[in-house]
């Protein structure tokens, strides 16, 4: 299990945070997601053999949100 924090572009509505959270939760291998509205971050824990950081990043970007960095 890996934990990663994705720094997103500034989120402007709590609904956006909820949307990203819902989508990431549905991803295979993703165990836990918390999208923080005020700090515009997504905290994701996932199984490394099922998915990876890049895939999660791509999913967030496919929703139309830029990923500025990963920690």
């Amino acid at each position: 299990m890996i934990n990663r924090t994705f720094q997103l572009e500034t989120l402007t509505c709590p609904n956006c945070a909820a949307k990203i959270e819902t989508v990431l939760k549905k991803m295979k291998g993703v165990k836990d997601v918390e999208v923080l509205f005020s700090s515009s971050r997504a905290k994701v824990s996932f199984e490394e053999d099922t998915t990876n950081q890049d895939e999660i990043k791509k999913t967030i970007e496919s929703l139309g949100y830029d990923v500025l960095g990963v920690k």
């Binding site: 949307k19 989508v23 549905k26 496919s62 929703l63 139309g64």
Partner: peptide
């Protein structure tokens, strides 16, 4: 256009957003 694009992207994941 960007509104529709966002809507379309979310609908792909089964989310009907604003």
């Amino acid at each position: 256009y960007p509104i529709a694009l966002n809507a379309f992207r979310a609908i792909k994941y089964g989310i009907v957003g604003i």
